[in-house]
Simulated assay, not measured.
Amino acid sequence: MTKDFLDIAQAALTERLKGENFEKSVSLRIKEIGNLIIKGDTAEISDDRADCAIIADQPTFEKILAGQLNPMKAAMFGKLKIAGDAKTALKFGNLFG
């Protein structure tokens, strides 16, 4: 399910990114699965470096994408880690309410 989840997450993020314009890049690092890079209004499967990295396991990202878990709460409870530019991470979190 690893590659399948990346494809599902990429499609969900692409939908949420319509009308957005991230000036900086965000890497979503899904533990033991892979990475997605968000830049501008696109999400791509990529291992490229980004201005900000958001790191969590697949179940946490599944809940965030489904709207069942707020990214800020996930970070507060240690389910999600942020490395790099925190302002960019906040902008990403705003996509999910």
Rank of each mutant, 00 (worst) to 15 (best):
A11F: 06
A11H: 12
A12K: 14
A12D: 12
L13N: 02
T14R: 11
T14H: 10
T14Q: 14
T14G: 11
E15S: 12
R16G: 02
L17M: 07
L17G: 07
L17F: 04
K18N: 10
K18Y: 01
G19L: 08
G19S: 07
E20M: 10
E20L: 08
N21S: 12
N21I: 02
F22I: 04
F22C: 02
F22P: 01
E23F: 13
E23S: 14
E23D: 15
K24M: 03
K24L: 05
K24Y: 03
S25M: 08
S25V: 09
S25P: 08
S25C: 05
S25Y: 08
V26F: 00
V26D: 01
V26Y: 00
S27T: 11
S27W: 03
S27G: 09
L28P: 00
L28D: 00
L28N: 00
R29V: 13
I30H: 05
I30D: 06
E32R: 15
E32T: 08
I33F: 13
I33G: 12
G34T: 11
N35D: 14
N35E: 13
N35I: 04
I38D: 00
K39V: 09
K39E: 14
G40I: 04
G40W: 08
D41P: 03
D41C: 09
D41T: 10
T42H: 13
T42I: 08
A43I: 04
A43Y: 10
I45N: 03
S46V: 01
D47E: 12
D47M: 05
D48F: 06
R49A: 13
A50K: 06
D51I: 00
D51G: 04
C52Y: 02
C52I: 07
C52W: 03
A53G: 11
I54P: 00
A56I: 04
A56P: 09
A56W: 01
D57S: 11
D57R: 07
D57L: 02
Q58E: 15
Q58A: 13
P59E: 15
P59I: 08
T60G: 12
T60I: 13
T60S: 12
T60N: 08
T60K: 05
F61T: 07
E62Q: 10
E62W: 02
E62G: 04
